[in-house]
C-alpha cells in the first residue's frame, strides 16, 4: 500500500510516521512538501502531527490553505484514505474534511503522556483490525486536543457510528470523551493520540499498530 506523508513547516511527527510505515510495516512511503500540488501515486495520505506554521492564529488554520491540502481534499473526495494525527486532525477539521474543532485543553496544560483509548467501532478502514471495546495504550502530546462540536453534530456522529476511539479517562475536556472521528464516507479519520509513537516494543507500546494494520487490511478488502 502506498503512503504519502504531508510535510508543513513545523511538522515534527512526519519522520516518526515515515519510520512506522516504511521501516516497521515495510510499505512504500514518500513525503509530500506542502507546496506541491500533487500527491503522486498514493493510496493513503497521512497528515502528521507537529506545529504547522507555529500554531499561529489557530492550530491548523494556515496549513489548511496549503496547495497540498487541496490535493488531499481531492483525494478524500475520490474516496482515498486520509488519516490526520494530532496537528493533522486539527488541520482536517480546519479544512472541513472533518466536523468540529480542537480547542485548548481544559487544564490549559500541554499534556504529554500515554493514555488509554477504547475502540468504539471496527466498522472503518482505520479500526477494522482492532476489536470493538479493545483498549489501546497510545501517547498524546498536545495543548489543543479538546474536541468540540455543537450538540447536534455530536448526536450525528454517534448516530452514524463515526466516533472510532474514545478516551477511557478524558485528559483534555473533549466533548463525549472523543479522541478520534471519521467523516461521513468513513475514509477520512482524525485522532489526537499518536499511533506512530506506539508501533514498536522499544517505544513502550505496540498498540498503535492496530490502526496501521487496519489501514493495510482495508487495502486488501477494497
Amino acid at each position: 500500500m502506498k503512503f504519502a506523508i504531508i510535510q508543513f513547516p513545523g511538522s515534527n511527527c512526519d519522520q516518526d510516521c515515515y519510520h512506522a510505515l516504511a521501516n516497521v510495516f515495510g510499505q512504500p512511503t514518500h513525503y509530500v512538501w506542502h507546496k506541491e500540488t500533487s500527491l503522486g501515486d498514493v493510496d493513503c495520505v497521512v497528515v502528521p502531527g507537529g506545529f504547522s506554521y507555529g500554531d499561529y492564529l489557530r492550530t491548523g488554520a494556515i496549513a489548511r490553505f496549503s496547495p497540498a491540502m487541496k490535493a488531499v481534499a481531492d483525494h478524500a473526495k475520490a474516496g482515498g484514505l486520509v488519516i490526520g494525527i494530532c496537528n493533522g486532525f486539527q488541520i482536517l477539521c480546519e479544512a472541513h474534511l472533518l466536523p468540529g474543532a480542537l480547542i485548548r485543553n481544559r487544564s490549559l496544560k500541554f499534556i504529554c503522556e500515554h493514555v488509554e483509548l477504547r475502540v468504539e467501532t471496527t466498522d472503518s478502514p482505520f479500526t477494522n483490525a482492532c476489536k470493538k471495546g479493545q483498549v489501546l495504550r497510545i501517547p498524546i502530546a498536545h495543548g489543543e486536543g479538546c474536541y468540540f462540536a455543537e450538540p447536534e453534530v455530536i448526536e450525528q456522529l454517534k448516530r452514524e457510528d463515526r466516533v472510532l476511539v474514545r478516551y477511557v479517562n478524558n485528559p483534555n475536556g473533549s466533548v463525549d470523551n472523543i479522541a478520534g472521528i471519521c467523516n461521513e464516507g468513513r475514509n477520512v479519520f482524525g485522532m489526537m493520540p499518536h499511533p506512530e509513537r506506539a508501533s514498536e516494543k522499544i517505544l513502550g507500546s505496540e498498540d498503535g499498530k492496530c490502526i496501521f494494520k487496519s489501514i493495510l487490511r482495508s487495502a486488501v478488502t477494497v
Partner: peptide, 13 residues
C-alpha cells in the same frame, strides 16, 4: 471571541 457555547478555560482562570 470564543462562542458562548464553547468552554473558555483561559477566561475562567
Amino acid at each position: 471571541m470564543p462562542k458562548k457555547t464553547v468552554l473558555d478555560p483561559q477566561g475562567k482562570t
